[in-house]
Amino acid sequence: MIPKHQREGFKVFLKDKRKKTYPKIIKEFLTLWRSKKELPLYYFKYLYRSDITNIEDYLSTKEAAKIQKSPKLHRMEYMAIMSNKLVFSLFCKQNCIPTPELVSYNFGSNFYFKNECFKISKNKELQSFFYKVLVDSQKDRLFLKPFSLFGGKGACIIRKSHLEEDIKENMDLLLTNDYIHEDVLNQHEDINKINPSCINTLRIETYIDKNNKINIMNVFMRFGVGNNIVDNGHSGGIYIGVDRTNGKLKEVAMEEAHFGGRDFYKHPNSDYPFKDFVVPFFKESCELVLKATQFLPDRYIGWDVAITQDGPIIIEANEFPDLFMSDTAYGGYLKNPLLKEILAEAS
């Protein structure tokens, strides 16, 4: 059974005027089938475009899965820290790694704040809890995300000024899931010029090589679109490569195929051009990730880094980073000289 997102992506391919001729597509598809030893359905997500001439430089589905799931690259003990947002927040605090302030949290209907447990079943009780949290912590808003957040799904914002409305909208979700409640970051003013609707993050991927050296493999940046409160590509956001030597954005941002697969030279809401925009605190962001990897030495991690007025803050670490985004943002990840070593190590 072909997943829904792949079916939607194939519909985009059929309508896309950027595609190569059908004889060329058939030839390249068969070439990849032989060389990669798998049915290359991933070809129809991006590689069919007429401007993509280096199809062999892109990761196959099997190669990406090999990196993501290799027991030689990942240890269960480290992955357990990354996969649970509460554990990861406490881990960062313990090691003085800057991360959003953890204000409160909940396990289903049990809510926790300042060493107290509040058992909640009614709307008014939940309103009272968050009113107390917001007043006592002197916050106007809280960003709530599930312990096992993926793709931005389930995240929400609770506002003191719209407390009744926000609780009504999110109560059922909160009472049936486990959430951490964090301070809402103040994003750097330069990034707000591009998109102020959410925190837009750098994705920085690290690899610890066979000589125990930490390498930054790739960097790209993600931007939310519309009124979305998250920047994730799986939630309709867009992403763009970053030049690792100077922190400048590349020229074109991309969109996941099942959302339309469009290219953007400017942000669709602000019309701010991407090309040559210099990410604030880029060097410091890379240094922060290298430091964090020393404390969490899983061999391949995708770090999400937000940029505030005061510098970078790590939002989360991803044990299964989306290598398709990294691959396309890089322009063919297999051009990276370390990728062959990674694939060999992952085998």
Rank of each mutant, 00 (worst) to 15 (best):
residue 26 I to G: 02
residue 254 M to C: 02
residue 169 E to D: 12
residue 86 L to D: 06
residue 291 K to R: 14
residue 44 F to Q: 06
residue 340 K to D: 14
residue 236 G to D: 09
residue 330 Y to K: 02
residue 312 P to M: 04
residue 96 C to F: 13
residue 241 G to W: 04
residue 29 F to Q: 04
residue 238 I to T: 07
residue 184 V to Y: 10
residue 31 T to I: 15
residue 200 N to K: 09
residue 243 D to R: 11
residue 113 F to A: 07
residue 13 F to R: 01
residue 20 K to M: 11
residue 62 K to R: 14
residue 43 Y to R: 10
residue 95 N to P: 00
residue 343 L to F: 08
residue 9 G to W: 01
residue 339 L to A: 09
residue 27 K to E: 12
residue 138 Q to E: 15
residue 164 E to L: 12
residue 19 K to M: 07
residue 231 D to Y: 00
residue 224 G to R: 01
residue 169 E to T: 15
residue 299 R to W: 02
residue 339 L to K: 10
residue 107 F to I: 13
residue 246 N to V: 07
residue 122 K to V: 00
residue 131 Y to Q: 15
residue 19 K to V: 11
residue 117 C to V: 15
residue 294 Q to Y: 08
residue 297 P to L: 03
residue 279 V to L: 11
residue 50 S to I: 08
residue 101 E to P: 00
residue 114 K to W: 00
residue 90 L to G: 00
residue 276 D to H: 14
residue 158 I to S: 07
residue 82 M to F: 12
residue 186 N to E: 15
residue 188 H to D: 13
residue 145 K to S: 01
residue 264 F to S: 07
residue 330 Y to G: 08
residue 87 V to Y: 10
residue 155 A to K: 01
residue 154 G to H: 08
residue 60 S to A: 08
residue 228 N to C: 13
residue 30 L to H: 04
residue 167 I to N: 07
residue 209 D to C: 06
residue 102 L to H: 05
residue 196 P to I: 05
residue 42 Y to Q: 05
residue 54 N to F: 03
residue 335 K to H: 13
residue 104 S to Q: 05
residue 160 K to L: 15
residue 125 E to G: 12
residue 237 G to H: 11
residue 141 R to N: 14
residue 253 A to I: 10
residue 175 L to H: 04
residue 163 L to A: 09
residue 267 H to Q: 08
residue 334 L to A: 04
residue 117 C to D: 05
residue 144 L to R: 00
residue 160 K to W: 00
